[in-house]
Simulated scan of single mutants.
Amino acid sequence: MITMEDIIRDGHPTLREIAKEVPTPPLEEDKQILASMMEYIKNSQDPEIAKKYGLRSGIGLAAPQINVAKRMIAIHVHDEKGVLHSYALFNPKIVSHSVEKSYLTSGEGCLSVDEAIPGYVPRYARITVKGITLDGNEVKLRAKGLLAIVFQHEIDHLNGVMFYDHIDQQNPLKPIENGLPIER
């Protein structure tokens, strides 16, 4: 089981590496790592389990955050309409995106970043993602709103990019031009 101690913190070199593709079909070891990442995200959202094991609540996790430089992400999040989206993907890739931007009005957080970093993070409002599921099937997913933001945040981790890299350092709370604000 992954715990908070397994999650590396901002400044660790793995967080700035470009993660390696996972060979397909995925090895059993990689499947177990990805399954345990999803288990962490689900457990972190259960108040009793989170309290018992000292887990910080999260809605997404990328393998580099547990010091595994491979292209794997786990996402478990309710969108703005309350619909649950749960994805564990190998080699996720954004294959298309909108011109329109969106951003979380509350800013973004990260399990690897302990302090709050205020600022708007511009993201694409709509994206299409391709990846491979735990059972080895290729999927193509369309995402918008919060789900699109979470996918972009986690895929950024696979490319050594942190969410705060996108924040305007001169004016962090400057509204995103043509950006759709999303409440969370």
Rank of each mutant, 00 (worst) to 15 (best):
D135T: 15
D135K: 15
G136M: 14
I155A: 02
N159E: 09
L141F: 14
F151Q: 01
E154P: 03
N159R: 06
H157M: 02
G160I: 08
H157G: 00
R142A: 11
T128M: 11
A143Q: 11
F151V: 00
Y164F: 10
H166Y: 13
N137W: 15
G136C: 13
I149L: 09
F151R: 02
G136F: 15
F163L: 01
I149M: 13
T128P: 04
M162I: 04
H166V: 01
V139K: 14
K130C: 05
K130V: 11
D165Q: 06
G145H: 12
G136H: 15
V129D: 05
H166K: 12
I155L: 03
L141H: 11
I132P: 04
H166D: 02
E154W: 07
E138H: 09
L158S: 02
V150M: 06
R142L: 12
V129R: 06
A148L: 07
V129K: 07
L158F: 04
G131P: 09
R142G: 12
N137R: 15
K130T: 08
Y164T: 00
R142M: 12
V161S: 01
T133G: 10
D156C: 03
L158T: 00
K130P: 01
T128V: 13
A143F: 13
L141V: 15
G131W: 09
V129F: 09
T128W: 11
I155Q: 04
V161T: 04
L147M: 06
H166R: 12
D165A: 05
R142C: 08
H153R: 03
Y164I: 00
V139Y: 14
N137S: 15
K140G: 06
F163C: 00
D165K: 07
G136P: 13
A148Q: 06
E138D: 08
I149S: 08
F151M: 02
Y164L: 00
T133H: 12
H157C: 01
L146F: 11
T128R: 12
M162G: 00
G136S: 13
L147G: 03
K144H: 09
L141W: 15
G131D: 07
I155F: 06
I167E: 05
K140F: 09
H157T: 00
L141P: 10
G131H: 08
V150C: 12
N159H: 09
I149E: 08
H166F: 11
L146Y: 05
F151N: 00
K144E: 14
V150G: 03
N159K: 07
I149G: 05
R142E: 15
M162Q: 06
V139Q: 12
D165G: 02
N159Q: 08
V139H: 13
I132Q: 10
V129H: 07
D168T: 03
A148C: 04
D156I: 03
D168V: 05
V161C: 01
N137D: 15
I132N: 07
L141E: 14
L147V: 12
K140V: 13
G145E: 11
N137V: 10
H153D: 02
T133I: 08
F163I: 00
